[in-house]
Amino acid sequence: MTQQGRDRLAGSILFVLAALWCWGVVATIPVLGAEGRLGPRGFPLGLGLLLAAFSALLIVSSFLSPKDEAVQELKADGPPLGVELWAVLSTLGFLGGYTVLLWAAGFLVATVIIVAAGLVLILGKRNWLFVALMSFGTALVVFVTFNKILGVYLPHGRWIDIWF
C-alpha cells in the first residue's frame, strides 16, 4: 500500500466512525439547552463533526500531495502482515486472558498461569525452570510488595480464591 492509499483508508475509516458517533449522539443524548446554555449534547456533537471534517481533509490532502512521494511504496521494513497480526492478537489475548483469569481465579492463580502461558505460548520458551521461576516469581513479588506491604487491593477470584 502507498502512503497515499493508507491516508485515504485511515481517513475513510475515521470519517465513518465520526459519522456513527454523531448519529449516536443525536439519537441518545438529550438537548437540554434551555436558557441559552450549552447542554450535554453540544460538545460530543461538535467534536464528532470536527473529527468528520478533519478526516475528510486528510483524504483530500492525500490527493494534493506531490505525486513522486505520495505514491511511493511504504518503506519495505514495515512488518509483514502475518507477524503484525500475530503480535496484535497475542498482546490482546494475553491481556484479555489475564483479565478473565483474574476475575475467575484471583490474582495469584491468574498471574502464575498467564505469565507461564505468555512465556510458553507466545514467546516459545521451553526452559521449564525459567518459566516456573518467572511465573511464580512475578506473582509472589507483585503480591508481597503491593498487597502485603503497600496494601493495594488485588482481585479475588469469583470461582477460585487462593489467598494468604
Binding site: L95, L102, V115, I122, V142, L154
Partner: peptide, 19 residues
C-alpha cells in the same frame, strides 16, 4: 513485556477496582 503486561493490567484495575 510480559511483566509490563501484568503490571499494566493490575495497575489499571487498581485505579477503580474495575475489570
Amino acid at each position: 513485556s510480559v511483566v509490563i503486561g501484568v503490571l499494566c493490567v493490575i495497575g489499571t484495575f487498581a485505579i477503580r477496582n474495575s475489570f
